[in-house]
Design a protein around this nucleic acid. Structure first.
Length: 575
DNA sequence: GCCGTTTTCGGCCCGACTGTTTTCAGTCG
């Protein structure tokens, strides 16, 4: 059991207890503990073995013994007993947006609904409107929610590239309203999460109600979820929820801080505020005694007030950033300007669109010192992978181009397939002739954990290999990461001084933030590459930078922040 | 169930909106 699974088990327990109507603070204790566990740097199983499981915030004696029980048996008695009392479909009912534990309980007790299907039937038969505090509108809302939930197979998460585009369009449209002075993007989009659940926008306006009316009446809105005096929420096509908060200039900093989140980060900040005698909300600091509100027009004022260094949005996850800020140990996060070149680029020799010259020109325009042309190897037949003979010609062409220009250095490389048995697609004699060797898995993604881990480990142990590309193979919304032992992969990379890639393609973002942070902490070097197949893809680098920043990655952790001379020294390129 | 630089008991992050009822519970972010 890893930390995520244990945290999930506590979260499920909290939901079950809420349904049962237990003391809400007891259920919150489970939620708090789950959040705290998710933020741990070290696996609980490791902490337990070394006997240092004390001092996890929110985990006291009772929950600690439950963690031990989970680690030893895979579950805990209280959970098993509770789940047996409750019909299995109940959890699913609580997952319907707009329906919480209280309503679920009422539907169960008064209507006997134990599944989404039964609830849906009850709504269609108008039995829900007869319940206390229920009515016609609730009935309709429930039916709509159920339909939407069943249509939404991706669990409501949208890749950042998709949601980001829509957000910018909506921002621009809102900005055209005469009632709105300025619109900014907040929420997980501002924190640059790889996928987002919704779009959060903040508008500055002196006429909030008119601003909200403009918002909910925009052309593409499919459904109005909420429309109040300072807040509106709508659904866009694709079941994409968009929230707008309207605020006056004086509280703008407080509002954007609040709605940038994360929720966990904010809860932590509010606790610090309380310890100083203030409560913190989206309008400012409120003195607990006098009740006087101090609004913040700039976000930085909030962190100043709390005695914290300003925290970049990307790391506001309550994953240690507040402690790091208090102890002066905040990382200086990498920036796009630190990148000196791209080490994963495809030309029209394999499945890329552009010639090597065109790619080199585009890289020069972006101010790069170098690029590596890393076309596919022959196993990737569908991508017109290069035979050994074509690869040798490829190297020659690149040599010739390098002789013609001083503006950029083109490195000869490959994205060499790691075959199903862990062998590489080219012989060592060939690999030796290249400046840089990237390896990657493109087939046999369904192998079991041991097999695929061994396969990648074997590749990382090859002396000619430099970088492992898109290390987990995931594609957002399309396929999950392959089942790999990440800790093992990182430690092998470390031992063999190999580099792990953060692939910047917005559909990959692989390594992800969590794994990038893990690799960095273990001292493994990273590369932030675009996997460019057409020159526009070079611009995807910003997505990779976002992931790296979320992973607390600094410039020194990334190989392609090196200048050409340093890079050649690190990769052992002599000429 | 957790937690404490006034506390080992009595608190526990904070506010908007909806739908219902007429003062608020439930849900959400």
């Amino acid at each position: 059991m890893d930390n995520i699974q244990i945290a999930e088990m506590f979260n499920r327990m909290a939901k079950l207890l809420e349904f049962k109507g237990e003391n809400p603070f007891k259920t919150r204790a489970y939620t708090n503990a789950a959040r705290s566990i998710k933020g741990l740097d070290e696996e609980l199983s490791v902490l337990y073995k070394s006997g240092v499981m004390d001092s996890i915030p929110g985990v006291g004696e009772a929950l600690k013994s439950k963690i031990v029980e989970i680690l030893e048996t895979g579950s805990f008695d209280a959970y098993e007993r509770t789940i047996k009392e409750i019909p299995p479909g109940i959890m699913e009912i609580m997952d319907i947006p707009g329906i919480g534990p209280k309503m679920t309980r009422s539907f169960y007790e008064k209507l006997g609904a134990t599944s989404v299907e039964e609830l849906s039937k009850a709504a269609r038969e108008h039995r829900i409107r007869r319940l206390p505090r229920m009515g016609e509108k609730h009935e309709e809302k429930i039916l709509r929610s159920i339909v939407r939930m069943q249509q939404d197979k991706d669990h409501g998460r949208h890749p950042i590239a998709f949601a980001g585009e829509i957000a910018k369009q909506i921002r621009d449209e809102l900005s055209s309203s005469p009632h709105i002075e300025k619109v900014v993007i907040a929420g997980s989009l501002r924190r640059k999460k790889d996928t987002v659940g919704d779009i959060d926008l903040i508008a500055i306006s002196n006429e909030p109600e008119k601003a909200i009316r403009f918002f909910v009446n925009m052309e593409q809105v499919e459904e109005i979820v909420e429309s109040g005096t300072s807040k509106g929420a709508v659904l866009y096509p694709g079941n994409l929820r968009v929230d707008l908060r309207v605020v006056e200039m004086a509280s703008f900093g407080s509002m954007i801080q609040h709605f940038t989140g994360s929720k966990e980060h904010n809860i932590h900040l509010r606790k610090i505020a309380l310890s100083k005698g203030y409560s913190l909300n989206e309008y400012g600091f409120k003195n607990e005694i006098s009740g006087k509100l101090t609004p913040c027009s700039k976000e930085k004022e909030i962190y100043d007030f709390l005695g914290l260094e300003y925290l970049p949005p990307e790391i506001r996850e309550d994953m240690g950033e507040i402690e790091a800020s208090l102890t002066g140990k905040l990382p200086r996060l990498i920036e796009k300007e630190d990148i000196k070149g791209d080490l994963h680029v495809h030309s029209n020799w394999s499945d890329g669109v552009n010639s090597i010259e065109e790619l080199a020109q585009a890289a020069i325009q972006r101010g790069y010192e170098y690029i590596a042309i890393t076309d596919h190897s022959h196993s990737t037949g569908i991508a017109n992978g290069l035979s050994e003979k074509r690869l040798l010609e490829h190297i020659k062409i690149i040599d010739t181009l390098n002789e013609k220009t001083d503006d950029i250095r083109i490195l000869s490389g490959t994205e060499c397939d790691i075959r199903a048995d862990g062998k590489l697609d080219y012989s060592n004699e060939i690999l030796e002739k290249l400046d840089i060797v990237i390896v990657a898995v493109h087939a046999g993604l369904e192998q079991d954990r041991n097999k695929i881990t061994r396969r990648i480990v074997a590749a990382l142990e090859n002396e000619h290999v430099d970088i492992l590309a898109h290390p987990t193979g995931r594609k957002l919304g399309k396929r999950p990461a392959y089942d790999i032992d990440m800790d093992k992969m990182i430690s092998v990379a470390k031992e063999n001084e190999k580099i792990l890639e953060i692939n910047s393609s917005p559909w990959r973002l692989d390594l992800n933030d969590t794994n990038a942070r893990k690799a960095k902490e273990q001292g493994v070097m990273l590369a932030i590459n675009t996997d460019t197949h057409t020159i526009e893809h070079f611009d995807n680098i910003s997505f990779g930078i976002d992931v790296a920043r979320r992973g607390w990655v600094e410039s020194d952790d990334v190989i392609n922040t090196m200048n050409l001379k340093q890079l050649c020294a690190r990769l052992g390129i002599l000429k």
